[in-house]
Computed example of a mutant assay.
Amino acid sequence: MSVATTDRLLLRDWTDAPADLARIYDIYSRHEVMRWLGGGTGRLTEPGQAAERLTSWRDRYARYAGRYGLWAIEVRDTGAVAGSVLLKPLPGADGHTPTSDIEVGWHLHPDSWGHGYATEAARAVLAREFTTDTRQVYAVVTPGNERSMAVCRRLGMAHLGRRTDWYGGTEVETFVRTAPASR
């Protein structure tokens, strides 16, 4: 299912097609990606774990009927998947219970870094979310992840400093984007 499109990208559900499962494994088994996601916990170590990861994403976001999720970022010209974009309720102080705060995020394969795909994909899901009653969306970034902080700035997000409100009290660089004013 397509979630959004841009000039260059198709944001769609990840599938259990062999190419998608291989790409999930290739992205989420890499230290250079996973070091920024929860300190590297959850790194895939066997190709078969990609199907389990996909099932966990589907189960986690099923109750949101497509509003929130973690989607593949497909480059329209090539069909290659650059990575994932997500939009979801941030987990609270216990690390699990969803809060009313919404997060946008991205996880790209290193071969797709530096092409503007994260910014373009995040901009599309933000625009989609701001058509609802959501007034602001956060991005939380592991301290030191300069690439992701640059994406936040390109998205026009305001830096709020380091906070420990979510993910079980983990300290994260926090950015926020407020919905555009209604006309």
Results as ranks from 00 to 15, higher is better:
residue 103 E to V: 07
residue 91 P to Y: 03
residue 10 L to C: 15
residue 102 I to Y: 15
residue 75 V to E: 11
residue 42 G to P: 03
residue 167 Y to L: 05
residue 94 D to Y: 15
residue 42 G to A: 13
residue 24 I to N: 07
residue 165 D to Q: 08
residue 26 D to H: 13
residue 93 A to C: 01
residue 129 E to M: 11
residue 111 D to C: 03
residue 104 V to F: 15
residue 7 D to C: 01
residue 59 D to Y: 11
residue 122 A to D: 01
residue 77 D to P: 09
residue 163 R to V: 12
residue 50 A to R: 10
residue 48 G to A: 14
residue 100 S to V: 11
residue 51 A to V: 13
residue 6 T to V: 05
residue 18 P to Y: 04
residue 125 V to P: 00
residue 57 W to T: 03
residue 112 S to W: 03
residue 77 D to G: 15
residue 123 R to I: 00
residue 92 G to S: 06
residue 138 Y to K: 05
residue 125 V to F: 13
residue 129 E to Q: 14
residue 121 A to N: 13
residue 24 I to E: 09
residue 117 Y to C: 08
residue 149 M to G: 06
residue 107 H to C: 05
residue 79 G to M: 11
residue 35 R to L: 12
residue 115 H to C: 09
residue 48 G to Y: 13
residue 133 D to E: 14
residue 34 M to W: 11
residue 65 A to T: 08
residue 161 G to N: 08
residue 99 T to R: 10
residue 156 G to K: 12
residue 166 W to Y: 11
residue 159 H to C: 09
residue 62 A to I: 00
residue 57 W to C: 00
residue 123 R to D: 14
residue 177 R to Y: 13
residue 37 L to E: 06
residue 160 L to Q: 00
residue 20 D to P: 02
residue 124 A to T: 11
residue 182 S to V: 03
residue 121 A to D: 09
residue 33 V to S: 05
residue 166 W to G: 01
residue 67 R to Q: 13
residue 87 L to V: 06
residue 82 A to T: 09
